[in-house]
Amino acid sequence: MKENTVLEVRDLSMHFGGLYAVDKANLSVKKDEITALIGPNGAGKTTFFNCVTGLYTPTTGKIFITPQGKKREEIDSLKPHKITNKGIARTFQNIRLFQNMTALENVMAGRHRLLKAGILHAILRDKKTKEEEEKVVHDSYEILEKIGLTKYINELAKNLPYGAQRRLEIARALATDPFILLLDEPAAGMNPNETRELDNLILRLKEDEKLSILLIEHDMSLVMRISDRIYVMDYGKIIAEGKPEQIRHDPLVIKAYLGENYNV
């Protein structure tokens, strides 16, 4: 069981002054599984993501990853771009696309780490660079195809419909060629139809791309449908962990979501 773990977070804490946004959280993501992190608003889920991806330096705690066929390594205290280069990609809760770039360019920017061309290559545009550029267009197009966004390739990201923007974020994250994908509320603001499509997309990513996915989501039906395991966070602490059906009936979880006096 242990060797299946691709991401392991141990006793992670993030303090802002007196506020314990994340408090000794333990979590692990297993290979080829969809793990969900749920909890009420302000529970510290996004902060948790920011710590894992290096945007915040955690106050204490350790984060380990185990890439396929490689040894386990520690990634806390690395810079964000270094962590991405280790194979962790993420999306953002409040969409952070490159608004004035086209959809294709967004994905191409995501491809950055897999390309080599430097200043001189860019200026001289030798054969190798040309080929690399052609390949990145090609690959990016394929990623967009997978996500179903090909009709928007040359549209500026800011002009895309909301649902498409959310999906473009996923496409851009995929472009970095990760083995762990962190999705921060991918269904936020989507209508039921779009959510349904998202379901399929995430499941497909898990099956076809062999991705291990950790997602934050408020849409419980989505979480229950697709997750293999669920962690529940409240006031920065992980208060429960288990399979969807266990979580559904966990009294602690119900209390955290609905308050003391709610009877199921």
Partner: peptide
């Protein structure tokens, strides 16, 4: 366009 998103693209 977005420095933070940029970092998480490995840039």
């Amino acid at each position: 366009e977005d420095e933070i998103a940029c970092q998480t693209m490995g840039i």
